[in-house]
Design a protein around this nucleic acid. Structure first.
Length: 293
DNA sequence: AACCTCATCAACCGCACCCCT
DNA sequence: AAGGGGTGCGGTTGATGAGGT
């Protein structure tokens, strides 16, 4: 019985001591040999669990606790439309973000979208927001008022584009018929959320200010194509590029895109790298880079 | 204050792939 | 060639906190 208890795999939240053991293991052996952590008796966690913990929480330079910026959201949406639910691949475009982050972001988004669609379909095409929760309706009003940014250019806005361009909010989504292309609705949600980008109205966190101070019109625009045109295939091909973001959205010539994504100094102050000071400098080179073909 | 709804996050699970023997 | 172990990925779930009624 005792031996059985010792063999038990531990599950659930990680303790600080376990994190420490895991970090020490990675220091010594690198981010591999996950199974040996258990076989050596260092932890009662499975190799998978250890790897997941490292990748999602302990790895250096993670943006833990930071909400997705408008730019990151746009990258996710753009790439998801191009390559589907390849979260790990998409995450390689977002330094400091994990596939789990991207996945969670997307599923939250889908839930929200589904709710909005359901709300609009159950009550027909009524233009009022009364079918939503009152607090939601309130939020939407403020968003509509605050939103001043130009629309994304990555999707074609055809009929009714001017209205949507200026008032891209969930309440307009609600007005949309359910036959509206999903991409369009997703775009509307995006721009809704991007109202956060209005620095005149929103207090931004210090570590995000570098990016959020960028005038909206200077943000590099993604490719306009949605279909798998030759250009899109080119984008897919760039997935092997260690810094594909530069290529996909144009060179950071204005410097506007640079800091949050490419400046090593841009780190979440809540997750300092003090644990890793004595790790060989090149040890993590492989982590952020895409695997070589 | 209690309750409800929703969003977010961390972690687990199953499957697929790769590599080694 | 086949089998097994290790690893990576995507889907799902449960816990928790925030905000509103």
């Amino acid at each position: 019985m005792e031996a059985k208890k010792d063999d038990m795999v531990r599950k659930g939240p990680w303790k600080a001591e376990e994190d420490e053991v895991l970090i020490n293991h990675v220091k010594k052996h690198g981010a591999r040999d996950w199974s040996s952590i258990r076989s050596k008796g260092l932890l009662k966690r499975t190799g998978k669990s250890c790897r997941l913990r490292w990748v999602n929480k302990l790895r250096p330079n993670l943006k833990n606790g930071c909400k997705f910026t408008a730019e990151e959201e746009r990258v996710v949406i753009e790439l998801q439309s191009q390559i589907g639910n390849k979260w790990a691949k998409i995450a390689t475009y977002l330094p400091g973000r994990t596939d789990n982050d991207v996945k969670n972001f997307w599923s939250s988004r889908q839930k929200r979208l589904a709710r909005i669609l359901q709300a609009s379909s159950t009550t027909g095409s009524s233009s009022s927001s009364s079918n939503l929760k009152p607090q939601k309706a309130k939020k939407e009003v403020s968003v509509v008022c605050d939103f001043q940014a130009p629309p994304l250019q990555s999707y074609s806005m055809e009929e009714d584009s001017s209205a949507r361009a200026h008032l891209c909010s969930s309440s307009y989504v609600e007005n949309a018929t359910t036959t509206q292309p999903l991409a369009m609705i997703q775009l509307q949600l995006t721009t809704d959320e991007m109202s956060d980008f209005d620095t005149n109205h929103i207090q931004v966190e210090p570590e995000l200010q570098v990016q959020q101070q960028i005038p909206f019109h200077e943000i590099p625009q993604p490719h306009p194509e949605l279909t798998f045109s030759p250009e899109s295939r080119e984008v897919l091909a760039r997935l092997e590029d260690p810094y594909p973001f530069i290529n996909v959205f144009g060179p950071p010539e204005t410097g506007s895109l640079g800091p949050p994504f490419f400046d090593p100094a841009f780190q979440n102050p809540e997750t300092p790298d003090i644990f890793f000071d004595d790790i060989p400098a090149d040890m993590f080179d492989n982590i952020e880079q895409l695997p070589s073909p």
